Simulated assay, not measured.
Amino acid sequence: MEIVTEATAVSLPACVATIGCFDGVHKGHQFLIEQVYTIAKAEGLASCLITFSRHPRQVLDTDYRPRLLTCLSQKIERFEHTPIDYCVLLPFTKELSMLSAREFMEILHRVYHVQTLFVGYDHHFGHGQDEGFQQYCEYGKELGMRVMHSKALIEDGVSVSSTLIRSCLLEGDIHRANAYLGYNYYLNGRVVDGRKLGRTIGFPTANIQPLCEEKLLPAAGVYAVYVYIGKECYSGMLNIGSCPTVNTDERPASIEVHILNFTGDLYQKLVKVEFLDYIRPEVKFDSVEALTEQLQRDKVTVKKLLNQRG
């Protein structure tokens, strides 16, 4: 897959394209991408995804902080798993937001050489949000661009969407979130200095700072995870929360992972964490001893779950 910017758009061949934020690049997006690829192959054209280098709402509202399933680098990484030929990174600006749907479609056709445009079943673009698929088809005929309506992916009686997956993650329902994503939810981070309290009770942890501040964290609690350090994969037990048993002061949620069967210094190293199972919510225990006993039980549970996965 080749990345295309406004400066390199002249090299983009005639294509079949679709446009969107594609947050999560989940199974619903993958279903749409397959439709784009199939039509492009049948028509002898290139296949193309058009997305934004920054969330559009952040440009229109500087106070808005999205809770992303995938930051831009992760999104592109997920695109690499698809058969798509090109990815256009469109710079979203206030000027672009003021364009009508027809003006925007004209840019797609003239600058990015879109011959066939797939419109998501619930997608709207252009300054006039009251316009819809019928108007897009009319504009397409005027511009010489074919406009097609994509089909939605329905699973468990619901349409797979980024909003649905966020809801699952915030409820700690990792199994459903991963099922709708089509892969394990993950975050990339750097190991930073922590309070080092875990090592005093036999559970040393790596304190992880996400590389993307806007990355959505799942619900507070304990999780079974895979931890990737370079090319090596380890089993881990991760906690999201404030660690109330040992922390008396209020502080933002931390991400701490106890890596099974690992010894060594991880400070400042980059790691990737995949969420596999939700074990339990975060609890304030009456004593550090009670916390330690629970962590021992959690460790047994995590080992059993991850061993079942092979």
Results as ranks from 00 to 15, higher is better:
H29Y: 04
K303N: 05
T248H: 11
L216I: 15
D130C: 13
A253P: 06
R166G: 08
H109I: 04
L32R: 07
Q74S: 13
L291N: 02
G144W: 10
A7K: 15
V300A: 08
T263G: 11
R78Y: 15
L32K: 11
E103G: 06
K94H: 11
F52L: 03
G241Y: 12
Y186G: 09
I76E: 02
E155W: 05
V257E: 15
F31M: 15
E138W: 03
N184L: 12
P83I: 02
R54N: 03
T245M: 14
K304L: 11
Y267P: 03
S150E: 07
Q296H: 13
R190T: 09
E43P: 05
L153Q: 03
C168A: 14
K269Y: 09
P91K: 02
M98R: 08
E80A: 08
L96M: 10
Q135G: 00
P210T: 05
D130A: 09
N207K: 07
D193V: 12
F22S: 07
P244R: 11
Q209N: 09
V147S: 01
Q35N: 07
S287L: 13
R146H: 01
V192C: 13
M105R: 01
Q58M: 14
R54K: 11
G132C: 04
H124E: 06
I255K: 10
V273Y: 02
L12K: 02
H175L: 11
Y180K: 12
C48I: 01
G182P: 12
R297F: 04
P91T: 03
L117Y: 01
I208S: 04
P244Y: 14
Q209P: 01
Q115G: 10
R67P: 01
Q115F: 00
E289G: 09
G20E: 13
Q58C: 11
Q134S: 05
